[in-house]
Amino acid sequence: MPHSLAEKKRALARVRRIRGQLDALESALEQGRECGPVLQQLAAVRGAVNGLMSSVLESHLREEFSRADANHGVAERSIDDVIALVRSYLR
């Protein structure tokens, strides 16, 4: 869960954009659109959800690592390493 008010607002804005993308996807399916545009919309939805997951996970990891280790430099490098791995997995 995003911890600051600004992070929460950004996450909610992303969820609302995802909802709009899903509405557009539903409409395309109802209208019997060609597969190409439907697949493109699916890819956009997947990318948006992965982006949201990455953002929330990053916030969580930063919170957890910052509490767990008093040695800030080591913890910060560890966080960056884990975030890079997770981002590469989500793409």
Rank of each mutant, 00 (worst) to 15 (best):
S55E: 15
S78D: 14
P2Q: 00
G51W: 01
G20V: 05
L12Y: 09
P2Y: 03
S88N: 08
R33M: 09
I79N: 08
S59D: 15
D81N: 09
N50Q: 15
E76F: 10
V86N: 06
E26M: 09
E7R: 00
G47K: 03
V56S: 11
G47V: 05
E64Q: 12
R62A: 08
I83G: 02
R10T: 12
L42F: 02
M1Q: 11
R33N: 11
L61Q: 05
G32L: 07
P2I: 00
R10M: 07
V38W: 00
A11M: 00
E64M: 09
E30H: 11
E30G: 09
E64F: 06
L57A: 15
S27C: 07
S55R: 06
L39W: 05
S27I: 04
L57P: 08
S78Q: 14
L25M: 04
S66M: 06
Q40P: 03
R91M: 03
D81T: 12
C35T: 09
P37C: 04
R46Y: 00
R16K: 08
D81F: 07
D81P: 03
L5S: 11
D69Q: 11
S4G: 10
A43Y: 06
S66R: 12
I79F: 12
R46K: 15
S78T: 10
E76D: 13
E76P: 07
L90A: 01
V49F: 02
E30K: 13
E30Y: 09
L12Q: 13
R87S: 01
R91A: 04
Q41P: 02
S88G: 08
G47W: 01
L39E: 14
S66W: 06
C35E: 05
L61S: 04
A11G: 03
R67L: 06
S54R: 10
S88F: 03
A70S: 14
A43I: 07
E63M: 05
Y89I: 07
V56L: 06
L5C: 10
L39Y: 05
V56R: 04
S66F: 04
A48P: 01
Q40L: 14
F65A: 13
R17M: 13
I18T: 10
K8L: 12
L22Q: 09
G51V: 06
K8C: 08
L61H: 01
Q21T: 04
A24D: 15
G36Q: 08
R67N: 12
L61E: 05
D69M: 12
Q40V: 11
P37R: 01
R77H: 12
R16S: 15
G32R: 04
K8F: 06
A44W: 00
H60N: 09
E63G: 10
G20L: 08
D69V: 13
R16P: 02
H60Y: 13
Q21S: 08
V56N: 07
K8R: 13
A6V: 05
E26L: 09
S59P: 01
Q40D: 14
D80E: 15
S88K: 12
F65V: 12
G36P: 01
E26H: 13
D80N: 08
G32N: 05
R16T: 11
S78C: 09
D69F: 15
